[in-house]
Design a protein around this nucleic acid. Sequence first.
DNA 1: CGCTGTTACTCATCATGACGTCATGATGAC
DNA 2: GTCATCATGACGTCATGATGAGTAACAGCG
Lengths: 248, 248
Amino acid sequence: MSAGVAKYRQVADQLKADIASGEYGPGAQLPTEPELGERFGVSRTTVREAIGTLSDEGLVTIEHGRGVFVTPPKVVKRLDSRDRLSRARRQENKGAFLAEADKQGFTPSSSVRIAFEPAQDFGEVLGIDPEDEVCVRDRVQRADGKPVQLAVSRLPREITRGTVLEEVTTGPGGAYARIEEMGYELTHFEEIVGGGMATAAERAMLGEQVRAVLRVRRIAYAGEKAVEVNDMVMPADQYELRYSFPAD
Amino acid sequence: MSAGVAKYRQVADQLKADIASGEYGPGAQLPTEPELGERFGVSRTTVREAIGTLSDEGLVTIEHGRGVFVTPPKVVKRLDSRDRLSRARRQENKGAFLAEADKQGFTPSSSVRIAFEPAQDFGEVLGIDPEDEVCVRDRVQRADGKPVQLAVSRLPREITRGTVLEEVTTGPGGAYARIEEMGYELTHFEEIVGGGMATAAERAMLGEQVRAVLRVRRIAYAGEKAVEVNDMVMPADQYELRYSFPAD
DNA sequence: CGCTGTTACTCATCATGACGTCATGATGAC
DNA sequence: GTCATCATGACGTCATGATGAGTAACAGCG
């Protein structure tokens, strides 16, 4: 080979170039591992290492027993948090996820699991005692049937007790609309964005091919009081989060 | 071995358990690859695969020529974008990165590469012709000598021409302070947050052990005019980005 | 027609062996 | 004392070869 570059890297780079050039289009199957070894004059070990790096980078998807395929470009969901959570949206009778589905044109669905637990560590952020109960709304949100987001909301039980917030369906406008009807006028949101590798459990929910995820914690405030903490997990390559803020 | 579980996974799980139990504490060196192969009765190939998964998950850090070490818990850098980019901070003579270093108590350093190119795709976001030149400020920012962030700023050449913005050192208050002195009063910022796996090039800059990264594009506006687009890449597990916005 | 077993082809796992590159400490020349 | 050199041992790369497991197409049977 050429310079002092590792062969598997040269192979990976060549395959990358071939994909970029359209030699292998979206969804196309790459030659088999032995074929690639033949073409590049390297062993199957080396080919697998090269393909492994491409898979890590999300460029290709490996399917056991079928082959290696060029990953089709993801439909990126652009979330403008401020617009999405606006009161106007709520008054259109849409929750945040439904509003987004409407805007981006996919069919939304979700499953919800309700539970009640002591607040524990979440007591601090919610400003309640760790022993106090919270209502946990654990949901899986799907676009056209495919899971695209995990979200776990926790609300102080003192707010939700006996309300529709402890039901599976929160009704028109979503949970935030209900909270406001309960007299807690939402004033602002805080979102804390992090990321990392998907855990095994998260991959089981979102799909085994998911690698990097974005983790967003949203805290909804009514004045100084936090009324909800919502921890969301989403595949990193499928989302863009947009924020605006003044310069002063 | 026991069930129909892959050996490398059994080895990985055992090592995970050993780390969790404190058998190997933070920063401790694991036995060498041949030693682990001996202990588990598997080949070095299998040991390497096991260690590779642990490395993927960020549990251990592999250092060429030295050994495999349990990754110490990382210090998370919390970035409150609004505060960090405030005019008050600029008037304290600190750029965004310097302000953060000051706040979090690390020693900052950075290297800068300046270039001039046609705007191309960036013309759209900057509101200029794709043929127009932009000033590209490509920087690597370090905390205590370790690279922690890549940032590539692009500014229309019409703004930067003949100014200190085309120099390596932008002076007190950072680039944004200079832009404002030039008569472009910054009104607001937009940040678009995404994520994914680090590319090979990014790993070469940020460290080979980096897996998931956050990608943030910040656009600085003076009124309706975009004066800078700044693409940043940072290791996902070392950062938390915090945003606040009103509910109405 | 529908189901099933076969079969060929794919990737997954694992062993063995070789050599390259890097980090580190010891050694010895200066 | 300082610094270049070398030996050692760590991980990095690569080849070869074998076996396991998942997929899909198809022939054959009921």
